[in-house]
Simulated scan of single mutants.
Amino acid sequence: MYFFYINMNNLIDTIKKIENILYSLERILKQECHNLLKSKTSNEEILELIKRKKILFKKLIILSQDRLCLEKEYNIFPPYESNNKLNNYWKKIINTCLILRKLNLKNKIIMNKKFYLNQRFLELSSSYKKSVTYNLDGNLEI
């Protein structure tokens, strides 16, 4: 029984770490949204956020694999209804994942709008520069 309790603590610790990583991802996505909304954001800032997200996703994948191994070994699976402590942590994780999904969608929409506006500006700018004029010899120039 003591052995099972220790391993249950390992599972609880793993789920807590997953929860912390998800909260960190939430903060990064909010910061990314803020940076995308600013008119003057350097590419370095956004690239740094992307690097941090990649690192966190790698950690999340490793922890999720550990969680799956522990669940399989001790035959306990989400939503952990038999254990209140695990169930509460799991509900927090689900809620955080839903928030992350909304933030990610919002960031994608902002990026697409910015890209579209920048692309449209470049198209208008290039058509503005292309003007038809006559040179000194009377021939058309583009």
Score class of each variant (00 low, 15 high):
67 R>D: 00
126 S>T: 09
13 D>T: 14
127 S>Q: 15
14 T>C: 15
71 E>N: 15
115 F>G: 00
94 I>E: 02
113 K>Q: 12
15 I>A: 01
83 N>R: 09
116 Y>N: 03
55 I>P: 03
37 L>W: 02
25 L>Y: 10
4 F>V: 08
11 L>F: 06
8 M>L: 06
36 L>P: 02
18 I>M: 07
32 E>G: 00
16 K>E: 06
7 N>G: 00
124 L>M: 13
83 N>W: 05
6 I>N: 12
121 F>N: 12
50 I>L: 09
93 I>K: 06
65 Q>N: 15
123 E>N: 08
23 Y>G: 00
18 I>H: 01
43 N>D: 06
27 R>T: 12
38 K>V: 08
108 K>Y: 08
67 R>F: 04
88 N>P: 10
70 L>F: 00
129 K>S: 15
59 K>I: 06
44 E>D: 10
46 I>G: 01
128 Y>S: 13
102 K>H: 02
120 R>Q: 11
26 E>M: 13
142 I>Q: 02
110 I>L: 03
67 R>H: 05
41 T>P: 01
71 E>C: 15
110 I>W: 10
136 L>C: 11
128 Y>N: 15
54 K>E: 06
105 L>C: 02
129 K>W: 10
24 S>V: 07
68 L>E: 09
133 T>M: 14
25 L>A: 04
118 N>C: 08
133 T>Y: 14
13 D>R: 04
18 I>Y: 02
35 N>P: 10
59 K>A: 07
97 C>T: 05
30 K>P: 07
51 K>F: 07
74 Y>R: 06
58 K>F: 00
31 Q>P: 02
57 F>E: 07
120 R>H: 15
101 R>Q: 12
46 I>E: 04
132 V>E: 08
105 L>A: 02
28 I>V: 12
31 Q>N: 11
19 E>V: 07
65 Q>I: 01
108 K>Q: 02
120 R>M: 11
51 K>I: 13
82 S>F: 03
